[in-house]
Design a protein around this nucleic acid. Structure first.
Lengths: 217, 217
DNA sequence: GAACGTGTGTAACTAAAGCTACAGAACCGG
DNA sequence: CCGGTTCTGTAGCTTTAGTTACACACGTTC
């Protein structure tokens, strides 16, 4: 089991042994809530497969996704809580087919003190999140929803330009409502850079979409 | 000189020597831009007196304050850039009477590897910022400007309830414009929980202000 | 193939925030 | 005490986003 973990950080033999002793594997076969807001955090979450989604709620009950934790990443908020003895400040949901290694807090702290790989990984993870959050904040300050949606679509399109999400889900990611997404989509479709189907949006002109609101007359 | 620094972290003799060799002190007697967006970061900034203000711009040229770096804190963005070789993603301005210790990047990295005090401080600083940013994001999603302003005032009032800022500065902190602040203030003043003067806002009923928008009819 | 659940499309209305423009008060320096 | 500068107060308009309310399309299942 520790094999899957060691592809992510190189440890000294002692560190390895310590890790092997305490780590727990959790597997999710269907979407499931992992952590609730205000819950006490018991350890570091390292995703080995699939992804976790971290989100909060808007005042009207709409979900707003903060970020994803993909394979090879740890949930930084959990790290935060570990180091500062805080309660978890958001909700976390596992996607289908997700596997997570749970490293108990005490063990993680001890690893952090001695293993440079763990130090590096921790700082890198925190740094990355800081930048993502700052970027997000700046965008909210400086872009209208249409630009944010355009950017989101370009960013999340697969190799064929498809984004496999319902409008409801898109709305959740941007902290808005479905109707607004539909309205903005109409604009995109009118310009011919996107087409829409049930549960999927297809980006047909990423170039145009990426510069939405900048090159417009 | 290193004396002022060592009140913030305890180092081993070797660490202390290394630090003393490389650290530079900078003093600002009047507000001054310290870092521009896109600039390369040369080291870690540790504030020993006064404060730094980190901000971006909205698309229409309004400033929006991201956070402050107070005495005893380091600028986390600079740390980030150091560890990830990135360009600085915002602007930084020093207040009047501010003193900053600049620890060159190479030295900071070496200290980080060996000194647990530096590791701790780094992780703590990053963690704190992550929480602040998340909180900020959540508020933008979930509160109207009036609530955010109310909260800001309550938060920044001194022991006498005074907030020594112009409306322009308040606007900058919330990423909005002066006119909007004036409009919201009118609401607060009408309810009698705030009074306004030139360059100062006085909170007279913090209770009411803190619950603004929750207890309103 | 009828009924139901889930997802999309659209229109009209409301609320929030931003923008423009100006009037007047407080402060500062000569 | 006069003129310039900075700050505050107010009004009206525009844009953006959220809300309400429905119609319809697609799929599934019985």
């Amino acid at each position: 089991m520790a094999d899957t973990l060691e592809q992510y950080f190189e440890l000294t033999p002692q560190g390895s042994a310590l890790l092997a002793k305490g780590v727990q594997q959790k597997r999710f076969t269907r979407p499931l809530q992992v952590i609730r807001k205000g819950q006490k955090v018991s350890g570091a979450y390292l995703v080995t497969q699939g992804q976790l989604r971290v989100y909060t709620y808007t005042p009207h009950g709409n979900e707003a996704t903060l970020y994803f934790v993909r394979a090879g990443e740890t949930c930084v908020l959990a790290l935060n809580c570990l180091f500062n003895d805080l309660l978890y400040p958001a909700w976390v949901e596992a996607d289908a087919d997700t596997q997570v290694a749970l490293i108990p807090g005490a063990i993680y702290r001890r690893l952090f003190e001695t293993e440079t790989a763990v130090q590096d990984m921790t700082v890198k993870a925190l740094s990355t999140l800081v930048f993502r959050l700052m970027d997000e904040l700046e965008q909210i300050h400086s872009c209208h929803l249409d630009q944010r949606l355009a950017r989101f679509l370009v960013h999340h399109a697969d190799s064929e330009g498809k984004v496999q999400m319902t409008q409801q889900q898109l709305a959740a990611h941007l902290g808005t409502t479905r109707e607004v997404i539909a309205r903005l989509m109409r604009g995109f479709i009118a310009e011919g850079c996107v087409s829409s189907g049930r549960g999927v949006v297809t980006v047909t002109d990423a170039e145009l979409l990426a510069t939405w609101g900048k090159t417009r007359a």
